[in-house]
Write a protein that binds this DNA or RNA. Structure first.
Length: 482
RNA sequence: CGGGGCGUAGCGCAGUUUGGUAAGCGCGCUUGGUUCGGGACCAAGAGGUCGGAGGUUCAAAUCCUCUCGCCCCGACCA
């Protein structure tokens, strides 16, 4: 079992070259591949299966909290996009424009949606007349185009998939509650429980907030290379868009009022997070709840016993299929050892080995991807054991990631120490910030670390700004980010 | 978009300095056979015009120009 280190030669060392390791894992595990279109990747069946499972967990939560799915146009006329000034400004550099329809030049060019606030707001203004029309709670699963200069598989591509929720409410209070509900009840619950990724939640600074929002809440996840990835955002749009798009209703008190809005999104980027949070030298480790294959059955096929073993494998599959996503790898051309490595690289949580010896003793062998532990299990206990193990793996992945996160949050109060920690240890730094954008900018400039969020849990202690030394009552997390 | 690196068979690479029977290696792939409890072995095969375009030359993977893409580091973002 120790000599299998050599297998890893197919993927770069995670320790030595994290970026290359990431690309290797994504490609060798067949999650995605490059295409001949600049900045655009293809999500392969295995990766898309993962995305579908991720979608279903999140979609369920979105619906449970009262939202419905809809679909809005891909194209957004320039005039609409321009209505909210801060919003356009924020997205202008990365908008792809359609200027021709067939051979005819368009009167007005159209943006390929970089996000859908503009188009959706234009419709909300039609739909909302009375306080009885509110709230509007919609979500859509769509593709998005942002003309990025630098791309990385899943983390930043020209086209990507996401869900974006857009809601309109009567009161400021209600919109704020919605924003927080999405953050905690939907996103945090989903990311921690389904993806096994612990997050730090909080508010973005003015500098980092969404273009056009009142304020933005965020979920930040720590990757195992010490960099932080924004896992999702939930924006309180206030009345900025309502005013720009004229979304008004007649309230019970006979007054015409602007609605209060929110928007929120998560993307296929989360797939990258799963890779970078759970993966190891041997490849992917998928959380059981979203793994396209939860149990892979590898029959050990000796000539004389092949038939019986395959039959048994098939009957086991039939039993497990009722509760789990399970497949058999009965390919003749690969040896069991090859398959073990292959499926481990692809992150399948549990492997079930069945050979003549097992047949004779009425058992199978189960091997965990997370701990690489192997155990024999009696057939009659199989279903409950598999269930138990998958649950354990799910928990274990989260616990491990939590531990890593905790170990990599450091409280620092001295700027030179700050610089050293960011440079050498990476991870998150918890410290005080005076609230001044100049300090924020300078720190970013000098250390490449940005304020990831202002956590909700503000301790009662005051301190001094890490940069300027002025009194501060705001605790923040700094980190280098993807 | 700035700095650096790289594009030769599906993947990983050699060949480029010194243009000329070097289109070559390993893995993978195909066929047949033996195998199968942690990346099996034997035999026989298929496959590239050297990222693309243009140029220099008797002759270009090799020299020149332009161009496209990818990776890394920065600025921007989910």
């Amino acid at each position: 079992m120790e000599r299998d280190i050599e297998f890893v030669k197919e993927i770069a060392s995670k320790e030595k070259d994290f970026s290359q390791w990431y690309v290797d894992v994504v490609r060798k595990a067949e999650l995605a591949d490059y295409t001949s279109i600049k900045g655009c990747m293809v999500i392969r069946p295995y990766g898309y299966g993962l995305w579908e499972n991720m979608q279903s967990g999140l979609d369920r939560r979105i619906k449970e909290t009262g939202h419905k799915n809809a679909y809005f146009p891909l194209f957004i006329p320039e005039s609409l996009l321009k209505k909210e000034a801060e919003h356009v400004e924020g997205f202008a550099p990365e908008v792809a424009w359609v200027t021709y329809g067939g051979s005819q030049k368009l009167e007005e060019r159209m943006a390929v949606r970089p996000t859908s606030e503009a188009i959706i707001c234009s419709l909300y203004s039609k739909w909302v007349k009375s306080w009885r029309d509110l709230p509007i709670l919609l979500n859509q699963w769509v593709n998005i185009v942002r003309w990025e200069k630098v791309t990385r598989l899943f983390l930043r591509t020209t086209e990507f998939l996401w869900q974006e929720g857009h809601t309109a409410h009567k009161t400021k209070q209600e919109a704020e509650e919605e924003t927080l509900k999405i953050l905690h009840q939907v996103y945090r619950d989903y990311i921690e429980n389904d993806l096994a990724i612990p997050v730090i939640v909080g508010k973005k600074t003015e500098k980092e907030k969404f273009a056009g929002a009142l304020h933005t809440y965020t979920l930040e996840a720590l990757m195992t290379d010490g960099k932080v990835l924004q896992a999702g955002t939930s924006h309180n749009l206030g009345q900025n868009f309502a005013k720009a798009f004229n979304i008004k209703y007649l309230d019970e008190d006979q007054q015409e009022k602007y609605v209060w809005q929110t928007s929120w999104g998560t993307t296929t980027r989360l797939i990258g997070a799963i890779v970078m949070v759970h993966g190891d030298e041997r490849g992917l480790k998928l959380p059981p709840k979203v793994a396209p294959i939860q149990v892979i059955i590898v029959p050990i096929m000796f000539d004389k016993t092949k038939k019986e073993v395959l039959e048994k494998a098939e009957s086991i599959r039939t039993i497990l299929k009722r509760d789990f996503r399970v497949e058999i790898d009965a390919r003749d051309e690969y040896t069991p050892g090859w398959k073990f490595n292959e499926w481990e690289m692809k992150g399948v949580p549990l492997r079930l080995e069945i050979g003549p010896k097992d047949l004779a003793s009425g058992q199978v062998v189960l091997a965990r991807r997370d701990s690489r532990e192997k155990m024999a299990v009696k057939e009659e206990k199989l279903v409950e054991t598999v269930k138990e193990l998958l649950d354990k793996i799910q928990v274990n992945l989260l616990e491990k990631a939590k531990k890593f996160l905790q170990e990599n949050i450091r409280e620092v109060s001295d700027y030179s120490e700050f610089k050293e920690v960011i440079e050498k240890k990476k991870g998150l730094i918890k410290t005080h910030w005076c609230g001044n954008k100049d300090c924020e900018d300078k720190i970013k400039e000098e250390t490449k670390a940005s304020i990831r969020c202002i956590p909700f849990e503000q301790e009662e202690i005051s301190g001094k700004c890490i940069y300027c030394g002025n009194e501060s009552s705001t605790l923040v997390y700094f980190a280098r980010a993807y």
